[in-house]
């Protein structure tokens, strides 16, 4: 690295390296003291912390997606209601079928059953009908 320096810079760097003051010798107990300090401060496991770190944003994101989906579902207009002509046809057809069914299948017993508000149970009625 020094070869690329101008001459006076190289001389300066050489001078600095040769004569820079050296630190006094270290206290021989520094390493032991440091290790003691380290032992007193056990490191917390980062695995649990990172799990919690990812769990919270994950839960928030899931909650947001869930809420958004729910809102979409609630705001969604039923498809059949969008087409007015189809809806009218459907209502008319349903109505006509109901009338036709009731016309052809009407029996005195069924009519009695439908009109009686105090009918005991449909099972009893069914069993009598099949008999």
């Amino acid at each position: 690295m020094k070869n690329f320096l101008p001459d006076d810079d190289r001389d300066l760097v050489n001078f600095l390296q040769q004569h820079h003051p050296t630190p006094p010798p270290a206290n021989p107990h520094v390493e032991a003291q440091l290790m003691e300090l380290i032992e007193r401060q056990p490191r917390k496991s980062t695995k649990n912390a990172s799990g919690l770190f990812w769990f919270l944003p994950g839960a928030i994101a899931m909650g947001m997606v869930f809420t958004w989906n729910n809102q979409r579902f609630l705001q969604q207009t039923p498809q059949f209601a969008q087409d007015r002509i189809n809806l009218e046809l459907f209502v008319v057809d349903s109505w006509e079928e109901t009338i036709e069914d009731s016309y052809f299948s009407a029996t005195p017993e069924a009519e009695i059953y439908q009109l009686l508000s105090t009918a005991e149970s449909p099972q009893v009625m069914t069993s009598t009908t099949f008999k």
Partner: peptide, 9 residues
């Protein structure tokens, strides 16, 4: 040497 060290410092 000490003089130079003093100067660098």
């Amino acid at each position: 040497q000490l003089h130079y060290q003093d100067l660098v410092k």
